[in-house]
Design a protein around this nucleic acid. Structure first.
Length: 441
DNA sequence: CGGTCCCAACGT
DNA sequence: ACGTTGGGACCG
């Protein structure tokens, strides 16, 4: 009798079949939609009056609606976000951006280990995201941007399912500059893992995501990136395959609605409105589904050091904002550190606010690292792994693919030469693969 | 470690 | 005959 019928957001209702889709995902115990209206089943005979919802179910719990609010929400709650509770991360998908606003992780020494391999796992679309807002591999293909993990694949080796979940486009992936992704961001991810594997922290909470930062209008012209926005132009024709039910109201509006007349000459030259400077947010989109390309990426870490049973841990925090462009190897991590308040202002959401309410939190980048290798006065916990160490890492991987003893010796020789040149030891891992491979050949 | 691209196998 | 999927070769 109180069996529920669900109404999902107005946007998805337009797509048609949304109710059926919700039923299917209910049966599969799939992702919880971020908010769902429910109405009594008995009052929904087909063709009859639209039943009023009586409750609003959110991840935080169930809210009973007043008659007035039930009327306001009669035709659906226009959902804009979807919470994703995965095995190994939690994220909030923003339908408008076609990507997560933030992704949360929790790393310990134990859960960064595992056998799951990223080989044979590919990027896949999130089928529980409504079609119009769902990013696809096609959107990324030949876009100039790579599919960048927020929760990295290598933080998800505990199981193959966790590994697969990390490759879901809408839940965990944003368009990222390839060079940035492979080098600087990659090194940042390795640094975070090392906080628990090498630097003695018991656990690390991580929050990562895209940012869309405002820039100022330059005095001599319009804003930089809006220039190449050929796709701001009109949906002048009906997209193929779109079904506009009730065409009279929903037919595409005239093109000039989307292309406003040029602004007055005076305001074009001005960088001020009413005497105050203004910001201008612009970002590219890629693909037919318009996946938003962030101008910047952020990563915030809250590192915990245990004080024993029952006592609260000592906590350390640092946040970083990095441009979504190639970043020079030599730049220190500290160069990108920002105060928590700055990140919160740009991001539009709070960052580990409960920790700061409950506990004293220290600046992670002000803590000296006792085990710092180059402990020339004061290496802090925010020292990135050297670019050389990273190079050695890739050379070691190639070592495992050597086909002949000659080739193996030559490659290992190169590794030793580089190590000597840079004044570092040959990595243990390289020695190990050399010996293993040596026996094999 | 982080990716791209291409082709063969597969299911419609 | 077609679009999707997965494995392998390749790159920094």
């Amino acid at each position: 009798m109180l069996q529920k019928v669900a109404l999902v957001g107005a946007g998805t209702l337009l797509g048609g079949g949304a109710v059926a889709l919700y039923f299917r995902s209910q049966q599969q115990q799939a992702r919880p939609a971020s908010a769902v209206l429910s109405v009594p089943h008995s009052s929904a005979p087909s063709g009859a009056a639209v039943p009023l919802p009586h409750t609003l179910v959110t991840p935080a719990g169930r809210t009973f609606l007043s008659p007035r609010h039930a009327e306001l929400l009669k035709y659906g709650l226009p959902n804009a976000t979807q919470l994703q509770l995965k095995q190994n991360y939690v994220s909030l998908i923003d339908f408008r951006l076609r990507e997560p606003l933030w992704v949360l992780e929790h790393l310990t020494k134990e859960n960064v280990r595992g056998d799951a391999d990223r080989a044979n796992v590919g990027f896949t679309q999130d089928n529980d995201v409504p079609k119009p807002y769902r990013a696809s591999n096609d959107d990324y293909a030949k876009s100039g941007y790579s599919r960048g993990h927020m929760a990295p694949a290598s933080n998800n080796k505990t199981s193959i399912d966790a590994m697969r979940e990390s490759f879901l486009l809408s839940s965990n992936i944003v368009p990222q500059d390839l060079d940035n992704n492979m080098f600087y961001w990659n090194r940042m991810e390795r640094w975070v893992r090392q906080l628990v594997t090498k630097k003695g922290f018991d656990a690390v909470h991580i929050m990562s995501g895209p940012l869309f930062l405002p820039s100022r209008l330059s005095a001599d012209g319009p804003v930089i990136d809006a220039a190449n926005s050929t796709d701001v132009v009109p949906h002048s024709s009906t997209p193929a395959g779109a079904s506009y039910q009730g065409t009279a109201i929903l037919a595409p509006p005239p093109a000039d609605v989307f292309t406003p007349p040029p602004s007055a000459p005076s305001s074009r030259q001005s960088t001020m409105i009413a005497g105050k400077p203004f910001g201008f947010v612009s970002y590219k989109t890629i693909g037919d589904s318009h996946v938003a390309v962030p101008t910047h990426l952020f990563k915030a870490v809250l590192a915990e050091k245990s004080n024993g049973d029952g006592k609260p841990p000592t906590t350390f925090f640092a946040a970083f904002i990095v441009p979504n462009t190639p970043v020079a190897d030599h730049l220190p991590l500290k160069a990108f550190q920002v105060p928590r308040e700055t990140l919160e202002r740009y991001a539009g959401f709070q960052v580990y606010d409960r920790a700061f309410q409950m506990l004293p939190v220290m600046d992670l980048c002000a803590v000296q690292d006792p085990a710092a290798k180059n402990s020339r006065e004061g290496a802090t916990m925010c020292q990135l792994e050297n670019a050389t160490e990273f190079k050695l890492f890739t050379m070691e991987r190639d070592l495992g693919k050597a086909r002949s003893r000659d080739q193996l010796e030559k490659m290992y020789g190169q590794i030793q030469a580089l190590a000597v040149k840079e004044g570092v030891a040959v990595p243990e891992a390289a020695k190990a693969t050399y010996e293993a491979k040596s026996r094999q050949l």
